[in-house]
Design a protein around this nucleic acid. Structure first.
Lengths: 242, 242
DNA sequence: CGGGTGCTTGAGCTGTATCAACGTCTGTGG
DNA sequence: CCACAGACGTTGATACAGCTCAAGCACCCG
């Protein structure tokens, strides 16, 4: 039922977990965890602050984001979640919906119950380590976003996330590091960067005028990755695979 | 050797892990993990970007912080690490020193090797869950810092961290939620908030003038927690125990 | 007593926010 | 097929939060 062939059908998830599922047994477990797919429409709230979390998810296709809503109506996007990424993992362990999650496109995902996850842990400490690794990497990403927002100006910040997204997508086999489809609106991106969408618009014009980046019609192109990486002080070690 | 009595000697760590170590067996394991204490002097770098991480630590006494150094000389403090908190956990799983850690005071801590940690996991899935929980909570804290820096102005930001620190210290039995010893310099705090120490100084004066906070001689006093919580839009659910 | 570290304050500048308006595209119903 | 609404992007004018640079102060420790 589930062999190497089926495993490789896991796509982005398989790519991410390969180091933690070297044997057939582990691949079967992983298939059980993430084999069953469902489609979720764009704009769905998968976790919301007042509901206890039942499930985590793994994304096979599409984009989502985690965010926190503030009392004054503003929101901060914590991270964009891409194919291969988990959703809601930490809420599962905290037994509390720590932040909201909304899909940005239609997505294909697998729903993961706590029970199933725990049972997988018991059966394979290697896969448990894999989940630890995923959580740690997500943490490193959020920490880098904090550095970005805390220390860099709007231009560097913008460049940094755009490079990061290309890098991460490329890692899971989507697009090239220097050009990728991107469903984000300027408002979304601004909310991740902690700047207003008006100002982001000017920043994007600046980057476009200097032929560094184009962000247009759902497509991001990084025309000069070297120059951009310098501007953004981008250092990819926090993203590298296990 | 290690019983309830010894367990309760674990102090901050014991308090945090109580839900994950209900039986004698688990308490013994936890003692093995965190029983052996060592003292580390203030200002020591425990993890540095160019060294592979060998150990994680749990703090019994004292403060540390995790931070990232930028090329331009600035640094962003990711989180202050207090008694009961782990250091370097994610670096252990990433097999890479993801960010730097430095002690802010002399600390008492236990060193934890990967091997020991893995062996504990195998012996108690409840304790493994506990470590998952710790990691998730740390993640929630960093995410909240991102929200803080991304969306709130300097005054709200400052109030928010000062409340958070009081809350966290109180949770592990240090000081009261509204007053605690705090070894941070204004520069440290500013680096966590993503503002300059000059500006932080003015913010602190503002808060002092309105008799909301005093930050002085290593002592923080929150004179009006209600007003502060309103200013900071502080909502403690991200810190609540398991 | 001298030098270092941290705190405080002032003056002027700049990056980003705010407010407001207009343009463009897409989908929808008459 | 046109009219319209709504979402998204663009641009300008103005305001202000926070930064930079610079100097002086207070304290502690050797």
């Amino acid at each position: 039922m589930a062999g190497d062939e089926a495993f490789s059908a896991l796509g982005a998830v398989g790519r991410k977990f390969r180091p933690f599922a070297p044997t057939h047994a582990e691949q079967v477990l992983l298939m059980e965890l993430a084999g069953r797919r469902l489609v979720i429409k764009a704009g769905e709230e998968l976790a919301f602050s007042d509901r206890a979390p039942q499930f985590a998810y793994v994304i096979h296709e599409g984009w989502a984001c985690s965010y926190k809503q503030l009392a004054d109506g503003n929101r901060q996007i914590i991270d964009f979640r891409l194919p291969g990424d988990f959703l809601s993992l930490i809420s599962l362990f905290l037994h509390r919906p720590e932040y909201n999650i909304v899909t940005l496109t239609d997505i294909v995902a697998s729903q993961i119950s706590t029970a199933k996850l725990v049972s997988v842990f018991r059966q394979s400490s290697l896969l448990a380590e894999g989940v630890f690794w995923v959580l740690s990497r997500d943490m490193a990403i959020v920490a880098e976003h904090l550095v970005n927002v805390g220390q860099r100006d709007a231009i560097a910040r913008t460049a940094h996330v755009l490079i990061e997204l290309g890098y991460r997508l490329h890692q899971v086999g989507h697009g090239k590091a220097t050009s990728y489809e991107c469903p984000l609106t300027q408002k979304d991106l601004a909310e991740a960067l902690g700047i207003t969408h008006v100002h982001l618009n000017r920043v994007l014009r600046y980057l476009r005028d200097r032929e560094l980046v184009s962000f247009n019609g759902g497509m991001v192109v990084l025309h000069d990755l070297t120059a951009l990486s310098r501007i953004a002080d981008f250092e990819p070690s926090y993203l590298s695979g296990r």
